[in-house]
């Protein structure tokens, strides 16, 4: 059980229909990621990194092939089932943070917990723990506009981990940050994988960011290379 990979991608292809043309960013791609690994994905723009990330996160489904995350074969799940699965198994971190502007840091982090049956008190305990983990306990009531980019991304990470998912996916999480903030985000991700056992798949353009990961893969023309 423990030596079977956490993510297992077998012969996965993904095509998009653009007007009459068909684009196939991923073709017969296979990949295994062990539990707890921090994996970096690099590659030129348009090479299909985000597409792959979305498949792993259950946001999109492959055109063919099969895909397991944990014990789940995502390729058998319907759209609604995927949504439900995401709510408890995945934390998604975006390049542009995507916090809800009208909600405070606290309320943003609370969003995934609203989908659970946790009481208000239990939610509070979890949110405070998440805020503490990302080092923003003193910013709970701040709105996103009152936070720096690095702080916003840390709130976004807190939102991604508050419901304790096994998998974190991050699409260029440091792409919009200065070096110092980027470093602290990378340290945080690294800690989440080392200390909390999260499996992380991170897309990045920055070789420095890739260095923080356990392993780096390059995606080019739909194929993975080392």
């Amino acid at each position: 059980m423990s030596d079977s990979p956490f993510i297992k991608i077998e012969q996965v292809s993904k095509s998009f229909q653009k007007g009459k043309a068909t684009i196939t960013p991923l073709e017969n791609l296979s990949l295994e990621v062990p539990r707890g690994e921090f994996l970096a994905l690099m590659g030129p723009s348009g090479s299909g990194k985000t597409t792959l990330l979305n498949l792993v996160a259950g946001i999109d489904s492959p055109t063919s092939g099969s895909l397991w995350v944990g014990e789940r074969e995502l390729t058998t799940l319907k759209r609604g089932q995927l949504t439900k699965w995401r709510a408890s198994h995945v934390g998604y971190i975006f390049q542009l943070y995507h916090l809800v502007p009208i909600l405070s840091a606290y309320e943003n982090i609370e969003l995934p917990l609203l989908l659970t049956s946790l009481s208000k008190r239990d939610r509070r305990t979890r949110i405070e723990a998440a805020l503490d983990l990302v080092g923003l306990s003193n910013r709970a009531t701040h709105r996103p506009t009152e936070l720096s980019g690095g702080q916003e991304q840390r709130v976004a990470i807190a939102r991604a981990i508050v419901h304790d998912p096994e998998l974190l996916v991050a699409d260029e999480p440091t792409g919009d940050l200065d070096r110092e903030s980027a470093d602290s985000i990378l340290q945080l991700l690294s800690r989440l994988s080392k200390e909390h056992g999260k499996t992380i798949v991170m897309v990045t353009h920055d070789p420095r960011a890739a260095e923080a990961a356990d392993r780096t893969l390059h995606l080019e023309k739909g194929k993975l290379t080392r």
């Binding site: 609604g80 949504t83 709510a87 998604y92 809800v100 969003l111 995934p112």
Partner: peptide
């Protein structure tokens, strides 16, 4: 629409 997509990503159903 984007914010709605974020909500869906988090796991909010349609």
């Amino acid at each position: 629409t984007r914010e709605t997509a974020i909500f869906q990503t988090i796991g909010f159903s349609r």
